Structures are given as C-alpha cells and as structure tokens.
Simulated scan of single mutants.
Amino acid sequence: MSADFWAGYISGAAGILIGNPLDLVKTRLQAGNAAPNAEPVTAGTGPATATATLHPPWSFRQHFESAGTLVKGTTAPLLGYGALNAILFVTYNRTLTALHDSPELPASFAKVWCAGAAGGLASFVISAPTELVKCRAQVATDQATSSWTVARDVWRREGIRGLYYGGGITSVRDAFGYGWYFWTYEWSKQAVSSPTDTDRETAIKVLLCGGLAGVVTWASIFPLDVIKTRVQTQLLNAPSHELGEREALLHRETHGKRLSTLEVARKAYQAEGAGVFFRGLGICSIRAFVVNAVQWAVYEWMMRLLRQP
C-alpha cells in the first residue's frame, strides 16, 4: 500500500476516537431526539417532527446514559472511516496528479477543489453504510444496541441495499464537502506558511489550518448532513416488545412508508422551520476543529515518516 493510504487510514481512525462523544451529541440533535428519555413521537407525525421534550442543546448530560455512551457507535466509523480516509487521500492525490498539479504544493486551487470532490465521491462506497450504521447506533438509547447489532439487523432485513439507504444524499454531501475541505486546507496553509518556519511553527500551523478546514467544510454541508441523518434514521418498522429498540429506529412513519430525501427535507422545514437545518452546528464546529486539526497533523506526520528512506 502507498504512504498516503496508510497515513489517511491512521489519521481517520485517530479522528474518530477523539471526536465520537461530540459526534454523538451532534447526531442526536440533528435527528430531533436530543433527549434519550424524551417522550416518543406520536404515530403519523413523520420523521421531521421534533419531540416536545427537547432539552437545551447545551445540556450534554442527557446524551450520555453511561460511560459506554462515550464510544457508542464508534465501531463502524472506526473501521470504516479509516478506510474512507485512506480512499479519500489516495483519490485526491491521484486526481490532482492526473490534473497535472502537485499534491505537495498545488498551484491551482480550482484543481484542488475538483480533486477533493473526486475523493469525496470515491469515499461514498464506504461512507454511506458507515454513516447509516453509526447514526442508527447513536440515536438508540438501548444499551444493547451496538454498531454490530444495527449492521446485522439491516443486513438480515434488506441486504446490501439497506446498508446504502440514503446513499444519494451522502454522496452529494461528501463530494461537495471534501471539495471545500481540501481547498480550505491548502489555501490557508499556503497563506500562513513560510520557508523560515521551525518544526514547531509548522506543526501549529498544520493544526490551525486543519481545524479551519473542518469548520468550513461542515458549515458548507450542514443542512445536507441534517437531512442525511434524518433520512437514515427513519423508522423502518413499528417497535414491538419482542424486537426492541434496535428494530425501531428513531421516528415513526405514516403507514410504515419511508419518506424520500426531498420529503424529509420538506417536512422538517414545515414542522420546525429553517433553523432545523442548523441544529447541532455549534457542537459540530467544535468537534470539526479538534478532529480535523488532529487528523491533518497525524496525516502530515505519517507522510513524512513513511517517506523516509
């Protein structure tokens, strides 16, 4: 495997370990189920309806039922996001090279954006099922529900097609978001870097540029991510005493019919206004800065390490 593959894999896994607690809060806020002990939505209200017992978004304690909640839903992204990040960076570097530019010091930011979008689109193969399993595990309050049980149940019920439910909106989100991700990182890095920088100054600037890239990326795609989360956490079947919560994902749909992406977006807007598409953006921005600062620092460090003779 190439150096950028392993550097991307390890940096992606590191980001998941650091950012999962804040990601859990973000997912629950987006899904409209901020309080795990909130009253369930009544039948027929659709996936976009918020529960009437929402806690303030700054009240974090209700999101963590136990210490295990801190790593809830981590297994799927830990395995998947490492591979996703590897594919992302390999595709980005190869695409930029094919566009006759240098991944080390690109001259055209337009080509950087296009290469980032290509990387995001390629990573959809892994990001779609990973996101689906992660989100469904995170919104579940039953401690018996894990990434493995969610993946197993989806596979048994719908097969490979079920794991890619919501894949269309996920691919659009990834392509658009990663275009800005690489663009912001390269633009800010070139803007603040100097040939006279010491190793310490370089490391600090990589952290700052990586964090900025994460914040800009999530700000640009957050409404798409809210819709994606709600699409993927729709209730597939009504809950039953025998099946438990893992079979009854977040919201009940009218007559058991799953809503399309546009229907989810429309109902969310009608029920909760435009603000619903930015719910959780604050906590997501904090997480994005921390996670992506670490990811870029690990990636750059691994690339230097693996390229040594």
Rank of each mutant, 00 (worst) to 15 (best):
A3P: 01
E104R: 08
L88D: 05
A128D: 04
N93G: 07
M1I: 03
A34C: 11
W58L: 13
T51H: 15
L96F: 05
R61S: 15
S11W: 02
C114Q: 13
P47L: 12
P129Y: 03
P21T: 04
L24E: 03
P106Q: 04
V71F: 06
V133P: 00
T42S: 14
N93S: 11
L17Y: 02
S66M: 08
G119T: 07
A34Y: 06
L96P: 02
T130A: 15
A115V: 07
E104I: 10
A117C: 08
A98C: 04
A50H: 10
G80L: 03
L78Q: 03
F60T: 01
A128Y: 00
V41T: 14
A34L: 13
A14C: 14
E131Q: 13
P77S: 06
W6L: 09
S123W: 07
S108W: 05
E65Q: 14
S59L: 10
A110H: 07
G12Q: 02
A43K: 04
V25F: 02
F124P: 00
F109K: 07
L121R: 01
W58P: 10
S127W: 07
L24V: 14
V71N: 05
V25S: 06
A83C: 10
A50C: 15
W6T: 01
N20L: 09
H100G: 07
A52M: 10
G12D: 05
A50D: 12
A43R: 09
Q30T: 08
A122G: 07
R28T: 05
A115F: 08
F109P: 13
N85E: 05
L70A: 05
T97V: 06
F109D: 08
A76P: 02
S2V: 03
S108E: 08
G44H: 10
A83M: 10
G120R: 03
Y92D: 05
T42F: 12
R61P: 02
I18H: 01
A50S: 13
A110D: 12
H63Q: 13
A7V: 04
E65A: 15
D23Y: 12
E39Q: 12
A107I: 03
K111T: 00
V125C: 11
I87P: 09
A110T: 13
V133L: 01
L17H: 06
Q62I: 10
G68M: 14
T69C: 14
I87K: 03
F60Y: 12
R28Y: 02
G120T: 08
P36F: 10
L29F: 12
K111A: 01
P77C: 04
A3C: 04
T49S: 13
I16L: 06
P36G: 12
G120P: 05
A86W: 00
T49G: 06
G12W: 00
L24Q: 02
Y81N: 12
S108L: 04
S59F: 11
A48R: 07
N33A: 14
T75R: 10
A14Q: 07
